[in-house]
Write a protein that binds this DNA or RNA. Structure first.
Length: 804
RNA sequence: GCUGAUGUGGCGAAAUAGGCAGACGCAAGGGACUUAAAAUCCCUCGGGGCGAAAUCUCCGUGUCGGUUCAAGUCCGACCAUCAGCACCA
């Protein structure tokens, strides 16, 4: 009689064994093995520690990594922590401690908890974004961006909270500060930006090279917001010109006014000629007070102000129209000016209504008496133009081309591609981030720190809370600020802004390839060995921005010859949330949280791992239930207890078919991230083994390998008990295709589309044979009361007999 | 508003390429073992109808239509939920 299944005991034993034997440490090259890079997003090590969400993705992706290893791949499956950023700083401020202390403590507990799940990470490659020898390279890369004209200091607007100072976009919720809830406003400030817009085109177009989920690609495209159109010059009657960008050049004959962004510099140039300047100034002031949120909130009333005394001239017909400023026009997009065609654009329509401006319909086929006949509607309808001189009667698509050609020929327009995406504001006026390694010299301007002086480390300080004047807390530390210009040696000031939380996470996957390299961020050989990442798993919340930043970062490094690929990730997947038993998101306040450690102590890590895989479709959210966990514990106990049913002289072939079928199913399911059905296939196999009443050693070994990706402790232990050798040295079983071919199959038979019976037929039976077998079956033949008019036979699937 | 996804028993969910809807599991009910409980094992389990029975019959995958011998799956319209984007010219 075998011992009882005691998960807690065996799990500790094997975790210790894996750690001591460095079982999952991996070399960059192994003779005769193909490399594969499997990546999970490195977590922020919060003080609360591991939560269920981590367990779900870590254990599922670990199952994939373990399976790939047994399939003979050399697998890189690393782990690290992303401890820079706002969250750590806030926790530190709350606890009145230094972020450095908090982070060190949290990382340790986090790692211990992760190890308790028996994950097959290569612990020798662990990195942490706030370690000096890591962020040294983040800083080094910033300098490369700068040297190549991709980083520059720009005057930009920042979110400003009267209490907390400068806020990151993610700290502003509905126009309010997420901490003190006061109204935020916009303030102008010189900030470092990375010129991501230069890569807009490639970031959009190169998505075809990737295998991301459709909605992930879509939101990348959405964020990039590429739109192709025409930029057209408009003369101002009173002198000067300005340009507008439009994607609907076909509506140009419908222009009845123009709108400029309030901040547009042209307005200043026209000051002399504007007869209501005071009114204009007042409007500009009130617009400046509004936050970005107020400005971009949809469905609010259009506001604006006429520039009295100013007319613009439509280049197609010389028509003079009034010019307005209005805050629905954004200075940062396009040219900060629009042509207004109220009949065919809803915003222009509302604006025209408010100011009593006429509307000219130029696209036929819609009604403009209530609202605009906009491009979303007319583009799909093959409409024709009206009121458009020589273009009247041509179709929209022809007119688009013809009008553009005419204007381009006349030299007043050109094709243009615009992006919604802005450059990446890279400065934070915060303490807990990588210092930006730049120095401002009175003679040389902005110059990078000498590379041999990196890293520029964060000074340990007493106070690091955000300052009230909006400058970085580092700015008040004299020893940090004062320095010498690396070029001319003059007294100079160091940049005191730090990098955003996204910085370290934009390249950490490169560092994993060569984490201890002290002379470069990673060697070319190491990067070539592993990149691109074959599968990358991470949370849904920050997928869009993180992927965009990381892709941009890698493209820059690729152009500089540092990285061998221009797309870092082949495939991106996301796990669904684990919800509380009440179906709501697990949270402290809802009191529905479940601590994974408690569950591990109660049932063992293997049971939790299996349950996290079985709980549901991987990408969908799933509700927690302890009963489900119990069921998985039961499965493992049943597998353990099979030790009693081994019989070596067992000659039966009864399990042959189902065993091979299960191997095939589990293999393909893990490959396609259908972990839940992989587990159910194993359950079916185990049920069948119990029904048959015994199995051979070899069959048991196969079962243990299949479940071993999910329950590695159990399989390791039973391998040892059964003298199967070391589990990590096992090979993934190869299913026997011929065993899956049955001589005889069960075929459903329908009469008039209704299943009336199931008959056993030879697998290769033809239609004639099958029909005659069906007719011999009295359960079926009793329905054939009239003459057969049609027979549909799909081999191995169905027989449908139509009678009439 | 736009884009994308989802909608199947009491519950979590399956269903390869249009071919037996509800695999697998939970909960529930019944039984075996036990002094008893736990554990374990076995049986039943979408809904209605006829009935002694089911291997009978009708209905059933958000709603309404369509294509097809055959639709959870394809097409059209709609409803609901979730996510991302949101005055982007």
């Amino acid at each position: 009689m075998i011992n009882k299944y005691e998960p807690l005991k065996i799990e500790k034993k094997w975790q210790k064994y894996w750690e001591e034997n460095k079982t999952y440490e991996v070399q960059n090259k192994v003779q005769g093995k193909e490399n594969e890079y499997i990546l999970i997003e490195f977590p922020y090590p919060s003080g609360i520690g591991l939560h269920m969400g981590h367990c779900r993705s870590y254990t599922a992706i670990d199952a994939l990594a373990r399976k790939e290893r047994l399939c003979g791949k050399n697998v890189l499956f690393p782990f690290g922590t992303d401890a820079f950023g706002l969250e750590a700083e806030r926790t530190a401020i709350k606890e009145h401690k230094l972020p450095q202390e908090i982070v060190a403590r949290n990382i340790e507990t986090f790692k211990t908890q992760v190890k308790g799940l028996g994950l097959s990470f290569d612990w020798s490659r662990t990195i942490n974004s706030c370690d000096e020898d890591y962020y040294k390279w983040t800083q080094w890369q910033f300098i490369q961006f700068f040297k190549n004209g991709l980083a520059e200091k720009q005057e930009t607007t920042v979110n400003w909270c009267p209490n907390c100072g400068v806020l990151a976009n993610e700290e502003v919720e509905d126009g309010k500060c997420c901490q003190c809830h006061s109204e935020t406003t916009q303030k102008s400030k010189a900030q470092w930006v990375l010129k991501m817009t230069k890569y807009g085109e490639r970031l959009a177009d190169d998505l075809v090279k990737t295998d991301y989920l459709e909605h992930i690609k879509q939101s990348q495209l959405n964020w990039i917001g590429k739109s192709e159109g025409i930029e057209v010059d408009f003369k101002i009657k009173q002198g000067g010109t300005f340009s507008i960008f439009t994607t609907c050049i076909e509506t140009i004959y419908g222009i009845t006014f123009m709108v400029l962004a309030p901040e547009n510099k042209i307005v200043d140039k026209l000051k002399e000629k504007i007869t209501n300047w005071e009114e204009v100034e007042n409007y500009r002031k009130s617009a400046a007070k509004k936050s970005e949120f107020d400005r971009t909130e949809m469905n609010k009333d259009k506001s604006g102000c006429k520039l009295c005394g100013i007319q613009a001239i439509n280049p197609v017909n010389g028509k003079e129209v009034d010019v307005y400023i209005g805050d629905f026009v954004l200075v940062g997009y396009g040219t900060g000016a629009v042509m207004a065609v109220p009949a065919h654009d809803q915003r222009d329509y509302e604006f025209a209504d408010k100011f009593g401006i006429e509307k000219i319909q130029v696209i036929d086929g819609g009604d403009v008496s209530e609202s605009a006949f906009s491009k979303q509607e007319y583009l799909s309808k093959n409409c024709k133009l009206m009121n458009s001189e020589e273009f009247t009667g041509t179709t929209v698509s022809d007119a688009k081309k013809a009008i553009a050609d005419k204007l381009i020929k006349a030299g007043v327009a050109r094709k243009k591609i615009n992006f919604k995406m802005r450059d990446w504001i890279f400065s934070r006026q915060r303490y807990w981030g990588e210092p930006i390694p730049m120095i401002n010299c009175p003679h040389c301007g902005w110059v990078p720190e000498k590379e041999e002086n990196l890293p520029i480390t964060l000074p340990h300080v007493d106070s690091y809370e955000p300052t009230k004047d909006g400058e970085s807390p580092l700015s008040v530390i004299e020893e940090f600020v004062n320095c010498k210009c690396p070029v001319c040696g003059a007294k100079a000031k160091r940049e005191t802004d730090t990098m955003p939380g996204w910085a370290g996470s934009s390249w950490y996957f490169l560092r994993y390839c060569d984490p201890h390299n002290s002379s470069e961020l990673a060697s070319k050989e190491a990067l070539e060995a592993w990149l691109p990442v074959s599968i990358y798993n991470g949370g849904n919340e920050h997928t869009t921005r993180h992927l965009l930043y990381a892709r941009f970062w890698v493209k820059v490094l690729y152009d500089l010859g540092i990285v061998p690929v221009d797309e870092p990730f082949n495939k991106r997947i996301s796990q669904g949330l684990i919800l509380g038993a009440d179906g709501k998101k697990m949270s402290k306040s809802a009191g529905n949280g479940v601590d994974p450690r408690v569950m591990v102590d109660r049932y063992g890590a293997d049971s939790l791992r299996v349950w996290m895989s079985f709980i549901g479709e991987y990408s969908e959210s799933a509700g927690w239930s302890e009963d489900g966990l119990k069921a998985c514990n039961k499965l493992l106990t049943r597998i353990w207890n099979l030790q009693d049913l081994i019989s070596d002289n067992k000659e039966t072939k009864e399990l042959n078919y189902i065993l091979n079928q299960t191997i095939k199913k589990v293999e393909s399911d893990i490959d396609s991230n259908k972990f839940n059905t992989a587990i159910s296939a194993i359950m079916i196999l185990v049920n069948e083994i119990y029904r048959v009443g015994g199995l051979s050693r070899e069959e048991y070994k196969t079962l243990l390998i299949l479940i071993g990706s999910f329950a590695p402790h159990l399989s390791s232990e039973v391998f040892e008990i059964m003298n199967f050798g070391k589990f990590e040295n096992a090979s993934w079983p190869i299913y026997d295709e011929s065993a899956l071919i049955l001589d005889e199959i069960e075929l459903p038979v329908q009469i008039n589309g209704k299943v009336r019976g199931i008959i056993k037929v030879p697998a290769d039976a033809n239609e004639e044979k099958v029909v005659s077998l069906a007719k011999q079956n009295t359960d079926i033949s009793k329905y054939i009361t009239e003459s057969i008019v049609k027979v549909i036979f799909v081999p191995k699937k169905i027989l449908n007999i139509i009678v009439k």
